[in-house]
Design a protein around this nucleic acid. Structure first.
Length: 887
RNA sequence: AGGCGCGUAGCUCAGUUGGCAGAGCGCUACCUCGACACGGUAGAAGUCGUUGGUUCAAGUCCAAUCGCGCCUACCA
């Protein structure tokens, strides 16, 4: 009895079953000692607070394809999984949780709060991991890491201390981006600039001792309370009279100097710039240069400080209104212009970021960035697609020092202590016993924690056990490829390059594959607030994981974003079902003894499909080797549906049912087995579940498909030659069948009606091929009679098609009226006319004939001749039809 | 302000070195023919954004231009 499958593919049970099977049998496990062909990917650690979205789905699918593919090619594959602790995001989530119970983290205290975060992580932290598993991710889960793990934390401290000792980490008072809601500093990258329609306010600062005084232009009038100078360009003749003067700072009792600095752009605004060193990065620089005081008028909470005088206690935006009102009352608000400018927002909570003077820790990025650039320039790391390399260079060239301290509780606490006795700062991996300077035991650790990206930057080697020199590191570092979206090219990729090169003395990965962003069907970024998200878990529920994976793969063309809609997923679900049914059909015929590549007595379709199989195998491997995922998916789709199902299965049905003798039946079954067996393996990286399920019903297989050898590595494949003759012959047969089907369709002849056909050809090879394979034509074109002749009487009452060297005549007498056939022929002829005209114009161009390569000219001439001949034959037939009509 | 990308069938997109414009979905007509209606067969459908240039030949290379999207940036 043959094996059977359900009528339709039902993914859910299958997915659960095989995922468990794979995991339980250790099929995702990497061997840490390695075997020379080792392949490693570290996962971009999803945020522990995250919920699986389409971006993850694409990212994970592509990595999984690579890992499964490399395993099939025989590599020892490590896919290192884990999550990062997402400092600000996680703290926000837990704080929100607490505040729902009316608790503020400060009431709780730091230690208790961190306990709460760990509790939260225990409860919810595995959610995202389970979702990755639903996608089929074949990570080596035994090795799962978390950036706050003991081991990784130790690495973070070691890195911090070493960089500090090397002078690459320093602490200082600088203007940083401050989020007044998260109450922490942010790195430049963590600020999202958005164009905002604001105003440019022109404000007069009266001259001390009388006189109108200069007019400054600003978008943030509230900061004027912290002005400590007014600056003009020294070459600006309009303002030379101001040199050395002072102005009264309106709304305050302070007098501030007018200074001259070339930094001031004479073209912008009024050419007079107010200087607020505590609240603007440029002003800060100018202030340093001119030794100006910094007056901080906006507090860390966004509330005006006592230095803001009567405005103290106001929210920064209310203060702006109040200041404007007062200026206007005093007649000092000269002009208000509409002005569109970029305003920074916190990337976590979207609050307007305040540039703020603050004491923070920084990484000196210059020397690190140099090496990170060089490694890509000299090809140690390849960025794919290449165009992203440019962005990478530009960003690194303009990189500024990286502010790494955050004023939150959840994260790696800065390993620095201040001595209460003498004020000495001690940076060390562990709490020092006493101050090395004064011997005091009163040491207080810096309360700040490090940027989450600081620990993520170490991910490729800390997950493998660094700073210990583990076998894992020896085997798998540098990793083979990093797969990620361009949105974290700077956040993460560039920083991993810097840290990897510095601490491991070699790049963290040989390739960086940058994939698309998934957008909604109208091209917008999917976001919860716009409500246009397609939830991958819902999709999986509805269509199955393989459908989602195949869809994402098919659309993952390099360099273009993916616009996703459910319609597309449905289309590829149909493909999965098609594959399923092809297998179901095959299982009605093939048995254990067919599981062999010992072929003999192959029919033309057998030879043809083996040629196609070899081609699709080569193409799939070639595409996956070069990250052309969509090409792999496309080639397999085309092969399975259109070559295997549409043609091959239909061709061999008579043989399978034994209508063509035992010999052909036996050989077709063997070929069928092979042509089902190999594509399952080719498809497995993209659609792991359905292929595994079919695999277990396929005769002649044992164990998991994950353990199969990739077809191009199998000896049968290497022995299998391409068969161009079979391809040529088959295309003739298929063209003849198509031409008859076309007549049937165009003439509206019912599919159930069998037809009589006469094929005439003067070309012996053509005639022989058709004669040898006439049963295929009879079958697929649904004929009751097929005659093949050299030449003979001109048949009457037929519809005609020209295929290569053959004239195909379908007898229509008594079936349809000939007006329809006349119309069809006219249409056909006018199509050919267009073609002939095009070719003729080419050939009558002396430039083309003389200068184009000979083969191209020859080809064009042949095509021209063919078309002319075809047209003549059709014209003869048209005449004959017309004469029948007039009879 | 600078940089990058995209404009190809009604829709979504392929198109690697220049050499006859492709796919999926949708649409139209017909079809229970022993895997599949999540299916089959056939069909209609495009001035490759626009303009110019290079070339025998341009969707493809160059220049300009229009439209859209994104990224980077300390011009108040």
């Amino acid at each position: 009895m043959e094996a059977t499958l359900n009528k339709g593919y039902e993914p859910h049970e299958v997915e659960k079953k095989w995922y468990t099977f794979w995991e339980n049998n250790g099929l995702f496990n990497a061997s840490e000692t390695g075997d020379g062909s080792d392949y490693a990917i570290v996962i971009p650690p999803p945020n522990v607070t995250g919920v699986l979205h389409m971006g993850h789905s694409l990212n994970i699918t592509l990595q999984d394809i690579l890992c499964r593919y490399r395993r099939l090619r025989g590599d020892n594959v490590l896919w290192m999984p884990g999550t990062d602790h997402a400092g600000i995001a996680t703290q926000n989530v837990v704080e929100r949780d607490l505040s729902a119970h009316g608790i503020d983290r400060h009431q709780l205290g730091r230690e208790k709060f961190i306990e709460k975060v760990w509790e939260w992580r225990k409860t919810y932290g595995s959610a995202i991991i389970n979702q990755l598993k639903k996608l089929g991710a074949s990570c080596d889960w035994r090795r799962e890491r978390f950036t706050m793990d003991e081991g990784l934390s130790r690495a973070v401290k070691k890195v911090f201390v070493q960089l500090y000792e090397e002078g690459l980490i320093y602490r200082g008072n600088y203007i940083i981006n401050w989020c007044p809601r998260c109450m922490t500093a942010l790195a430049d990258l963590e600020v999202e600039h958005e164009a905002v329609d604001g105003h440019l306010y022109h404000i007069r600062y009266p001259l001390v001792g009388g006189g109108d005084g200069p007019v400054v232009a600003t978008t943030r009038p509230e900061t004027m309370l912290g002005d400590t100078a007014v600056a003009v360009n020294p070459t600006d003749s309009r303002y030379t009279y101001l040199a050395g003067k002072e102005v009264d700072l309106p709304l305050t009792s302070r007098r501030i100097p007018v200074i001259a600095d070339a930094y001031v752009d004479m073209e912008f605004g009024t050419g007079v710039l107010k200087i607020t060193p505590a609240h603007d990065p440029n002003d800060f620089e100018v202030g340093r240069k001119h030794d100006l005081e910094s007056v901080k008028v906006i507090g860390d909470d966004g509330i005006m400080t006592p230095d803001a005088g009567k405005y103290a206690g106001l929210d920064r935006f209310d203060c702006r209104k109040a200041v404007l009102k007062d200026l206007e009352a005093q007649g000092l608000l000269v002009k208000v212009e509409s002005y569109n400018h970029g305003v920074g927002h916190c990337y976590r909570c979207h609050t307007v970021v305040e540039p703020n003077l603050s004491k923070q820790w920084f990484v000196k990025t210059g020397p690190l960035a140099e090496k990170a650039m060089a490694a890509v320039k000299n090809g140690q790391t390849k960025i794919i697609p290449e165009k992203w390399a440019n962005d990478y260079f530009v960003w690194l060239e303009n990189i500024r020092d990286w502010c790494i301290s955050r004023q939150i509780w959840w994260g790696h606490q800065v390993p620095a202590w201040t001595c209460g006795g003498c004020g000495e700062v001690i940076v060390a991996e562990n709490l020092p016993g006493v101050c090395p300077v004064c011997g005091s035991a009163n040491l207080v650790q810096d309360p700040d924690v490090l940027d989450t990206w600081f620990s993520s930057a170490l991910w490729p080697f800390t997950t493998m056990g660094w700073p210990d020199n583990t076998p894992l590191l020896k085997t798998f570092y540098p990793t083979s490829v990093l797969v990620t979206g361009f949105d974290i090219l700077f956040f993460w990729v560039a920083r991993m390059m810097m840290m990897g090169l510095h601490f491991m003395k070699s790049v963290p990965f040989s390739d960086v594959y940058i994939h698309a962003l998934v957008r909604d069907e109208s091209g917008k970024k999917m976001s919860k607030s716009t409500g246009n998200v397609i939830d991958p878990l819902t999709v999986i529920e509805k269509y199955g994981t393989d459908s989602l994976r195949f869809t994402l793969t098919a659309f993952a063309a390099q360099g273009r974003d993916i616009k996703l809609s459910e319609k597309r997923i449905e289309g590829y679900r149909n493909f999965i079902n098609k594959l399923w049914n092809a297998a179901r059909f095959s299982f009605m015929h093939i048995h254990e003894e067919d599981a062999t590549s010992d072929f003999s007595g192959l029919s033309l379709p057998d030879r043809w499909i083996l040629d196609r199989l070899k081609t699709v195998t080569r193409d799939t491997a070639g595409a996956l080797d070069t990250y052309r995922f969509n090409d792999a998916a496309g080639a397999l789709y085309q092969f399975v549906w259109h070559e295997f199902c549409d043609w091959y299965l239909e061709f061999i049905k008579p043989a399978l049912y034994g209508n063509k003798g035992a010999g052909e039946q036996a050989s077709s079954k063997k070929v069928l087995w092979r042509v089902l067996h190999d594509p399952l393996i080719l498809l497995h990286p993209i659609t792991p579940f359905v292929t595994e399920e079919i695999w277990h019903t396929l005769p002649g297989t044992e164990g998991s498909i994950m353990k199969a050898a990739f077809p191009s590595d199998a000896s049968e494949f290497k022995e299998m030659a391409l068969d161009p003759a079979a391809v040529t012959e088959m295309s003739l047969i298929m063209a003849v069948i198509n031409s008859i089907r076309n007549i049937r369709g165009e003439m509206n002849i019912s599919p159930s009606r069998v037809l009589s056909v006469l094929i005439q050809s003067l070309d012996d090879p053509t005639k022989n091929i058709l004669t040898e394979n006439q049963e295929f034509i009879i079958n697929l074109a649904r004929l009751e009679e097929l005659r093949i002749e050299t030449v003979g009487e001109k048949p009457k009452g037929t519809a005609t098609a020209i295929v290569d060297q053959a004239v195909v005549s379908v007898f229509l007498k008594g079936i349809i009226d000939f007006g329809a056939e006349a119309g069809r022929l006219e249409k056909e002829i006018s199509k050919i006319d267009v073609e002939i005209d095009k070719l003729n114009r080419k050939l009558s161009n002396p430039g083309f004939v003389n200068q184009a390569p000979a083969p191209v000219v020859e080809k064009t001439k042949d095509q021209f001749a063919e078309n002319v001949e075809k047209k003549e034959k059709l014209a003869v037939n048209l005449k004959r039809i017309q004469s029948i009509q007039s009879e």
